[in-house]
Write a protein that binds this DNA or RNA. Structure first.
Lengths: 348, 348
DNA sequence: CTGAAAGCGCTAACAT
DNA sequence: ATGTTAGCGCTTTCAG
C-alpha cells in the first residue's frame, strides 16, 4: 500500500511530519535517522505519521549539511563498448548494496571531458571510479587529492586502483600459441594512450624472447570493431601465423574481415582476443581470449572507493593500494596449429 | 591550466569569492548565473576570482533552493542485457547535451525495486525514464503524477512514452518467412509481464490468420541466453519450420543449443530474433532480426522527459504523448527456405 | 547595479 | 528524551 501522494505540488517535509505529530523537527529527524536517541513510542508515532503523509527525505538538503551525497560516479570512455558492461553492473550492484547511488558518465574517449567532469563533480559525488582513464599521471594524481578516486587499469602512485592482470594472461596466450607451433606472432596494439596495451606489449616481448619466437607490434588501433578490419588487413601484410589482439572488439572485427577475404581462422591464422566480452563465445569461430573478471573489478573498485572515502572521513592518510585481479586464458576455437606452409602462401 | 586546488579541506564557496572581490555573495551569484544583471566589469572581476580560487558551485545547495537537481534517472531491468546499452548511451548523450546528469539504476527485473526507487527518487531527480517497466498500469499512472516519467515500450494512458514498434516489424518477419515457404511457425514468447511480447503476439496472430499459416506460441521464456536453450528444446518438440524469438538474446542462446543438437540453421529451421543487439550480426549464423532503433529511443525519451519537466514547471497539464519509432526487418543468414521434408524428420 | 537578509530542508550542537 | 537555534551554500526578494 503506497501512501497517498502529496497533493499536487509542495512536497512533504520534515516539518509537516513534525506538525502532524506535534513535536519539533529535530525530534522527527532523530526518530528517522538515529532511532536510538528517541523513545520507542515516539519513534513509532513519527514513522507512522511519515508513512501517512508520504514523507521522503530530501537528499539534497541532507547532502548539503552532511557534506556527502551518498552517490558514486563511474566515468567510462564509451558506454557502448561491451567491455564496460560488466564494470557498470559490478559498480552498480555494489553501490546499491552499500547504500549509494551510481552516476554514470560517458567521457567519449576524451581526456578533456574527463578532466572537466572531475572538476565539476567535486561537490556532487563522494567518489569516482575512473575506467581506462585517458588522463596523464600528473592530472590523475592532482585530481585524487581533491576527490577520492579509484582507477581501473591504471597504475599511478598514490591513487588506489584495480588492475586486471592481462599481461600475465597474455603471456599464457603466447605460451599457448607457441605450443601450437607458432613462431611468428603479431600483437595488434590498442590506442597509444592505453596503459594496458603498453604493459601487455612489454610482457609479451619478454615472453617472446624467452621462447625465441618472433613478435612484432602492429597498430595502434582504436578499440573498436571497425578498426578490426584495418587490423586484419595489417596482419595480412605480414607473414605471422597468429595475432594477439588488444581486445575482443578488435578481434571480432578482424574475424569478419578475415572471412570476407577468405582467410580461414584458425586454419590459416590463429586469433586471440582479450577481455572475454559478451559475444566472444558465440562469434564465428568462438574466440580464444583472456577472460577479464570485469564485473568483479567493478565491485572491487567500488569497495576500495568506499574504503578510501571512509579513510578520508577519519582523517587517515590517503592510500595507494593496488588490487590485482588474475586473468586467465580461455581457449575456444579461434586458435589452432600453425599452418605447415608459410602464411604468405595463404589464399588471399 | 587548472586553478590551484583548494587547500586540503574546506571547499571554495561563493562567499570566498565574494570576499576576494570585496562584494556581496548575491553579486557573485548574479555574476555567475545571470550575467545580464550585473555590470560587465563586475562580471569579469568575479569570474577571474572564481577561476583563481578554483570555485565550483555546489549543486546540492543550488538544487535545494531551485527545486530541481539537473539530473535524470534511467531505470532499467538489467544492465547486462545488451538491449539496454543503446538506451543508456542515447539517454546519456542526450542528457549531457541538455545539461543534465544521468543516474543509472538497475532494478534487476523486480517490480518492487522499481516501485521503491520511484518513491525515493522523487526528490533527487527531475524525471525518470522507465525502460520495460514491470509495474502495473495503475502503479505507473500513480507514479507519473508525482514525478515526470517517460516509459519505453509501455503504453499507459497519461504517461508519455516511446514505443519501439516491433509488432509492425514482426509482421514483416512473418511475411518474410511465409515468402520462404514456411507454413508452420512458432513465437517464442518473452516474460508474461512483458507488454511488448503480448503486443507482438497479437499482431502476429492477425498476420498469420491473413496468410493462412499455422502459428503457435511457446513459453514464456526469460529474455536471456540461458533460456534460449530451453526455447530451442521447446521448439524441437514441435513440427514448425521457423521460430520468431522474443529477442536476440533468446535467439542467440537457441542458436547455440541448435548447434549442439545438430540442427542446422537455416537449413533445418529458420530463426528470427528481435532488437538487433550487439552480436546479432556476428553470431553464427548472423541473425535475421528486427532492428530496433534503441539509441534513438534513448534520445527521444530524454527529450520527451525534458519537455514534460518543462511543461510541469510552466504549470501546463501533463501530456500523454506517445512517440512510435519504426522498426525494420533486417535479413541476415539465420532464415532460409522452408525444408522440403517436414521438420519432424530432421536429424536430431 | 549592488547589498542585506531571508530561507530552501535538514542536522547538530546546545539547552532543558 | 525532546525542544531551540544556528547554519550548510546558494538564490532571490526587497531595498537602496
Amino acid at each position: 500500500m503506497r501512501p497517498p501522494a502529496a497533493s499536487a505540488h509542495r512536497a512533504v517535509t520534515i516539518s509537516d511530519v513534525a506538525a502532524a505529530v506535534g513535536v519539533a523537527t529535530s525530534t522527527v529527524s532523530r526518530a528517522l535517522s538515529q532511532p536510538g536517541r528517541v523513545s520507542e513510542a515516539m519513534r513509532q508515532r513519527v514513522v507512522a505519521a511519515a508513512n501517512e503523509l508520504g514523507y521522503y527525505p530530501n537528499p539534497q538538503a541532507r547532502s548539503l549539511i552532511l557534506g556527502r551525497t551518498q552517490s558514486l560516479t563511474l566515468l567510462i570512455p564509451d558506454v557502448t563498448n561491451p567491455f564496460y558492461f560488466g564494470l557498470i553492473r559490478g559498480a552498480q550492484s555494489q553501490s546499491k548494496a552499500r547504500g549509494y547511488r551510481l552516476l554514470l558518465v560517458d567521457t567519449e574517449e576524451l581526456g578533456g571531458v574527463e578532466a572537466s567532469y572531475l572538476d565539476e563533480l567535486h561537490k556532487s559525488t563522494d567518489g569516482v571510479i575512473l575506467a581506462a582513464s585517458r588522463l596523464s599521471d600528473d592530472e590523475l594524481a592532482a585530481a585524487a587529492v581533491r576527490l577520492p578516486i579509484v582507477t581501473i587499469n591504471r597504475d599511478v602512485a598514490g591513487v588506489p586502483s584495480v588492475i586486471i592482470d592481462t599481461p600475465a594472461a597474455a603471456v599464457q596466450a603466447l605460451d599457448h600459441l607457441v605450443s601450437l607451433g607458432h613462431t611468428s606472432i603479431a600483437y595488434l596494439a590498442g590506442p597509444a594512450t592505453s596503459w594496458s596495451s603498453r604493459k601487455r606489449w612489454r610482457a609479451l616481448q619478454q615472453a617472446a624472447k624467452r621462447h625465441g619466437v618472433a613478435l612484432q607490434q602492429l597498430g595502434p588501433f582504436a578499440p573498436t570493431r571497425q578498426a578490426g578490419a584495418a587490423a586484419a588487413d595489417a596482419i595480412l601484410t605480414t607473414t605471422v601465423t597468429a595475432g594477439l589482439f588488444f581486445n575482443d572488439l578488435l578481434a571480432i572485427g578482424a574475424l569478419g574481415r578475415f572471412a570476407e577475404r577468405g582467410v580461414v581462422v584458425p586454419r590459416d591464422l590463429s586469433v586471440v582476443g582479450c577481455d572475454d566480452i559478451f559475444g566472444a563465445d558465440f562469434c564465428n569461430p568462438p574466440l580464444t581470449t583472456l577472460a577479464a573478471p570485469v564485473e568483479q573489478a567493478g565491485r572491487v573498485a567500488t569497495d576500495m572507493l568506499l574504503r578510501s572515502i571512509q579513510r578520508r572521513a577519519d582523517g587517515s592518510a590517503a592510500d595507494g593500494h593496488h588490487e590485482r585481479l588474475a586473468t586467465y586464458l580461455t581457449i575456444r576455437e579461434s586458435t589452432g596449429a600453425a599452418p605447415a606452409s608459410t602464411r604468405s602462401e595463404r589464399p588471399a
